[in-house]
Write a protein that binds this DNA or RNA. Sequence first.
DNA 1: AACTCGGGGCA
DNA 2: TGCCCAGAGTT
Length: 214
Amino acid sequence: MTIKLNKEEKVEKLVELFSENYPEPGTALKHKSSFELLIATILSAQTTDVQVNKVTKELFKKYNTPQDLLKLSQKELEKKINSIGLYRNKAKYILKTCRILLDEFKGKVPETRKELLKLSGVGRKTANVVLANAFSKAAFPVDTHVFRVSERLGLSSGKNVDQTEKELTELIPKKYWIDFHHWLIDHGRAICKAQNPDCENCFASHLCRYYQNK
DNA sequence: AACTCGGGGCA
DNA sequence: TGCCCAGAGTT
């Protein structure tokens, strides 16, 4: 049983389905200052919101500016975040980023992609997350899950990251960017896995290109 | 373009 | 118990 829809209609349907099945997307990034959002996003590489929340909840109680975090040595910061993976690198990136924020950006998180990419531990995905979440700007953030799941659903071509970013930026209404990003990630983990996607238990299979061509 | 970081999730 | 990973920097 499949339904034919154009992409825009499909997005609307998916918004309904995703919001029912994943009611609280992006818990690690919501209700944060642009600085806390930046740090939480750097920490989120190769791990989950749940893991990031464990660390940031305590960390941001006392340290919520670049000046605050720079009071910590790298070892001290490592100890505060060592329950998540890649913590040595992340501690190093974060302290370096705080230093750059103070030296070059007057302690404030910059609002352009070019400037964000000067920070340590910030690549195209992290830059887009910050721009979209904190400043409602720029492009839809694309990571491996977003790339794969949006291609399977037929929302993007799957050609490359540049093209996918462009396609989703045009297709997804801006008001849905933040939630949609997290929905695609949640879905990519739980059901639409890279290997052996669990299509039998997928609530969106009736409008999925991948499933139809299976 | 390949390698590295890393604790947690899951088979 | 081993395999894989919600990226980015380094070589």
